[in-house]
Amino acid sequence: MIKITNLCKHFGELVAVESLSIEIPKGEFFAFLGPNAAGKTTTIKLLTGLLKPTSGEASICDYDIQRDYIKAKSLISYIPDFPFLYDKLTGREFLNFVVDLYPAGRSKKTEAMMKELLFIFGLVDHKDHLLEYYSHGMRQKLVFAASLLHNPSVMIIDEPMVGLDPHSAKVVKDILKNKSKEGVTIFLSTHTLSVAEELADRIGIIDKGKLLAIGTLDDLKASFDIKGKLEDVFLRITEEE
């Protein structure tokens, strides 16, 4: 589903991502961890086509994100940590707008899904309010709802829990779990290690642009001979580096 081959990104002399190769099969929940400025956001931007690699390739469902970007992007949904929204649109208008931008467009099914998602995220009472009055958490929930409306095959998520209350965080986690079971590939970048520990099938740890470790939590623990939590594994790997 997601295939990253020898991906490199240089900003002048700075190497943000170096020879990154990861393959994430259909339906896998992949957590991408790393300290600040490790190269996580750069990798996500390369995956979504917001950056062009210096060398190497990234493809979504066998579509190269640079060459076949329309087909690749039709299958992705991207949730940034601080999403862009139109302040002068209402929540409902924004959702309709996003649906219309995808090839499938609006249908009775999307209408029903929209109602359901607004209900799940507790936005029903606010759906006709302008987005400028939404709190950060409400905005984040709306973007989650928008990202699910076109039935993506791959979800790329940057810091999903920023600004979410415990109830909404639980809802998001449940949705992501279910999506993964339904066959949606999830690429999640986060600093919240407990979320990664709870949800991820496999975990990748990156620092200074290099992939330091990849595998299931048990694999990582075994490789580094640690019996504690993911936090211990993460600290050991990144400190060693």
């Binding site: 979504t48 917001l50 329309i70 995808y102 090839p103």
Partner: peptide, 13 residues
């Protein structure tokens, strides 16, 4: 603008 960045993540030429 951030809108451009948003559009660039969507399947639009």
């Amino acid at each position: 603008t951030r809108e451009t960045q948003f559009f660039l993540t969507l399947p639009i030429e």
